[in-house]
Design a protein around this nucleic acid. Structure first.
Lengths: 108, 108
DNA sequence: TTGACTACCCTAGTTTATCTAGGGTAGGCT
DNA sequence: AGCCTACCCTAGATAAACTAGGGTAGTCAA
């Protein structure tokens, strides 16, 4: 089963990837999300890169061009303290909201 | 804590409300969702009514004007078999996706 | 009887995020 | 030389939610 990224959850997924694995480039983030979810969530590149740019503007990440292990140019993103705070907020919010939804849909 | 309706979940919340309580009017659906979630999820009327119209077009619900207990005109929506199927699909999808997201955000 | 409040329905315009569908560079291997 | 993979990016379409309105009609109290 393959599913779209639920709107509003992408920032959280990206931020958490960076929090777990340290600085990563976009391609790596996409791969990580895809593999961790066993291909259920696939982040399209056309979705990912604009999101990363918005996150730069918001100050949640910083970027730097480096060379990968494969000897290719890539832009590495690092979490800022603000990004870390944002991640905590988004996870809290996600928990509250999914719990609320469950209250509606769960009882037979 | 008050939160927006996560995009993509509104149909499911409406369908489930109808499945649980039988035919309801829009206002009642909104109240039910709000009360069940203890005010965490608030469905704006400008969101709800267009959604109900789309659901009519999709054939998930049927509508009928009746009079409420309060002696007011109201449009009562009833789940169709298709709507019931759609509800099951959406709940399954919701479970799969939230589980996938948890796999990314859960581990420390 | 008028005014306020509540119960109900609806539309228009804006915003935001995602998707699709492209385009592009450059390394490594055959 | 040609292909595959690893990487980055943009533009346009789509969809769904939000904000901010407008409107009718019943009930109740002043």
């Amino acid at each position: 089963m393959r599913a779209d990224i639920p709107p509003g959850t992408l920032y959280m997924l990206i931020l958490k990837s960076l929090a777990r694995l340290g600085p990563m480039h976009g391609y790596g983030i996409a791969l990580h999300i895809q593999q961790t979810t066993e291909d259920i969530l696939q982040v399209e590149e056309g979705t990912l890169y604009p999101a990363l740019q918005r996150m730069l503007i918001k100050g949640w990440v910083e970027a730097e061009w480096r060379t990968t292990e494969n000897n290719r140019r890539a832009r590495y993103y690092t979490l800022t303290p603000e990004g870390r705070r944002q991640l905590a907020t988004e996870i809290r919010q996600f928990d509250v909201v999914t719990a609320a939804i469950r209250r509606v849909i769960e009882p037979a």
